[in-house]
Write a protein that binds this DNA or RNA. Structure first.
Lengths: 387, 387
DNA sequence: AATTTTTGTTTGTTCACTAAACTAACCATT
DNA sequence: AATGGTTAGTTTAGTGAACAAACAAAAATT
């Protein structure tokens, strides 16, 4: 059983604390680390020596214009290793390589021609090998590979269900690890998006919801610096929350699910019907909006009403500090946030801020890199600059 | 800043682990503790000596019928102190005194004649003093006083809002601590109910939802052995989840909130209307059910439909292992669970078990005692026998 | 040049753990 | 009764990481 405590455990705790403080402060002396962490200067010196030895931090001499001995500044050796984040989306895989402070080194999107599982594994493995080669000259090489999957992922990182690919209970982790020859982390894409918002954008939000609106509605829940996953890892499926009893039928077996009313594809689908078209896309909507097309504005208002109903429910259930909506549609509708907030009037709902994401489609890969960095440093919280 | 590690911290971690193991195993030797905790026998001996010294555990010699030296069994000194749990409900306060293993020593309900805040504080303080006297001969006396409040409680234990009492931003903790002269913990009643279910009933459910249906719908969320509270402490207010857009108006300012459809009082209210009565109560419904009254059965079915809609939503958002419904109404309708489960058919919803609570109205005070015991022993998880 | 101030290192102590040897107590067999 | 085997619990020596305090280094101020 047992997670017992011993000296090594203490040292690990304090090492994490020190690393985390260095990342937050960007550049800091041993003396200041001692003040911030409440560890003695002696302890800091020993730990700093270990970190220097491991090449995880570097020393810098700055000029100094106050009394006392000049401090030796410590900062993260950001190129000691690299993190690879992968967004395994329908139709395309996106790869992001970042340094240890989350700065993007390269960002590439590879279209997925084949839907065949083995082909996808092969393509991914080839790309991973390429990035591994690119990172190989650094001290630690590729420190992590994290794959974002647009579906249900269990606590054991098994892929339980991915609607667009038609995958059921796939052992993606094992298959990809075998093909690529290194350890891989599988995570739900909405979780990665919410982590990205937390790490790169909302440094004050300890409790954050990230909702991705596209074909369905994905929800990433960051509470107290960690993902909220529930018993199996399936927490946060708000798309199948019933908001209209006996409403539109849904593929899940129920009627009136939120994603039949509040997802972007529901919006496009209904708009196409109203416009008597086969399909409409993002650019059509943008043009209609510039022309102040009445039908479109009415439909957006209706969309926002149903969106707000679901948001109201999530806010009541999770009490987040910040809610981030990742939606291409809302990005082109400047009043979106104001319009939604007009609907969030209950005196029970408590949240601090509602935003439309700035990270957009990069959120998933950025979150994947961030997760890899967190794991590598073994730190519970991470705050980085997007550049 | 900083929660740093040092030797004392290690010792505390291992002490908690040992105490928790003794509670789980009820009676265990040092040698077996060593096996279960992976600490060496030497370490266990030192810690056991401390615990004996603190009178938190006692030694027992049992007869023994196998080879080798006879073990000295350790078990919790259950009467070293007592926990007091208080349910501050509208109209009545319930007090439960338990030993350190959660066995009820006394259970008393005091009607609240006055609604005046100061009178309530006075009454509570007097009762607390009585129980403190009762516990005073033990080594630690009253080790904790936990008050369950039927409303929103912040992370700092401020009472933000209690509908039935009309309280807003009340400093109940401070006022009661001053009047009673000891430290007091304030907690939301639904949280305490869910803790009680976890501690006394569902020992395998790491992730549990406890929903209390009465005048409103309260939700206690136990995830990974701790309360899920959100940014302010207000997470889990499903009563104000909108399940009927533009539905019945609610006091919260929205329309179509779940508690207008799925709470017991909504049910009674609507039934009274249908029956052309001023009001109906629990016994009326029980009688009608025995007579197989058609109106009542129809109405229960409708109630269960709306109840299921909300449960479906909570299950999708939290992915719990176990959902416990605390409802007097459902207790007298034996098919309740089966009927609800007929509605939970989505292939996205994941939960393991749905139950109607056995603890009923005692859940809150039992959970309050359990919380006090957890705090006193400083252990993250607790499993006790209800007797 | 001497003084003050701050940074970082060195030395010695404390504390909780482990490992291994030891003592204690019991059963089984001869 | 004596011996051997087995399990329970204690003692002792050693390790690692923290802390405290003294010390050394380096800069600005006087």
């Amino acid at each position: 059983m047992a997670a017992t405590g011993d000296a090594a455990y203490i040292k690990q705790i304090n090492r994490s604390l020190i690393l985390q403080t260095i990342i937050e402060e960007k550049m800091i002396s041993r003396a200041d680390l001692s003040k911030l962490t409440a560890l003695t200067r002696a302890t800091i010196s020993v730990q700093a020596a270990d970190l220097l030895d491991d090449e995880l931090v570097v020393e810098t001499q700055l000029e100094h214009h106050s009394v006392g001995r000049r401090p030796i500044m410590l900062s993260i050796n950001r190129e000691a290793g690299f993190a690879l984040g992968i967004d395994l989306d329908y139709g395309a895989m996106t790869f992001a390589l970042s340094d240890l402070l989350g700065k993007l080194i390269s960002l590439e999107t590879v279209p997925l021609e084949s839907m065949d599982y083995d082909d996808i594994i092969q393509t991914a493995a080839q790309q991973i090998a390429r990035f591994q080669e690119q990172a190989s000259s650094s001290r630690y090489g590729l420190v992590s590979v994290v794959v974002g999957v647009h579906g249900l992922v269990t606590l054991k990182e098994e892929v339980h269900f991915v609607p667009r690919f038609g995958w059921n209970n796939i052992r993606l982790k094992e298959d990809l690890e075998r093909a690529a020859g290194l350890s891989i982390t599988i995570e739900n894409n909405a979780n990665l998006c919410s982590l990205a918002e937390r790490v790169f954008e909302h440094h004050d939000a300890k409790n954050l919801l990230g909702a991705s609106l596209s074909s369905g509605i994905g929800l990433g829940i960051m509470m107290n610096e960690s993902f909220f996953k529930g018993e199996d890892g399936f927490a946060g499926e708000p798309g199948h929350m019933i908001i209209v009893p006996n409403g539109k039928p849904c593929s899940c077996g129920n009627k009136g699910c939120w994603e039949q009313y509040g997802s972007e594809s529901a919006f496009y689908h209904e708009l196409a019907e109203k416009k008597g078209r086969d399909r409409v896309n993002h650019d059509d909507v943008r043009n209609w909006l510039q022309e102040e097309d009445k039908t479109v504005i009415e439909m957006i208002d209706s969309f926002i009403f149903y969106l707000s109903v679901g948001l109201n429910n999530m806010i009541n259930l999770y009490n987040p500090a910040v809610v981030v909506l990742n939606s291409e549609l809302l990005r082109i509708y400047p009043e979106a946030v104001a319009r939604i907030e007009e609907n969030l009037v209950s005196n029970i709902s408590h949240y601090k801020h509602l935003h439309v994401s700035n990270l957009g489609k990069q959120a998933c890969v950025l979150g994947a890199c961030a997760l890899g960095i967190k794991q590598f440093f073994q730190i519970p919280t991470l705050q980085l600059e997007a550049e």
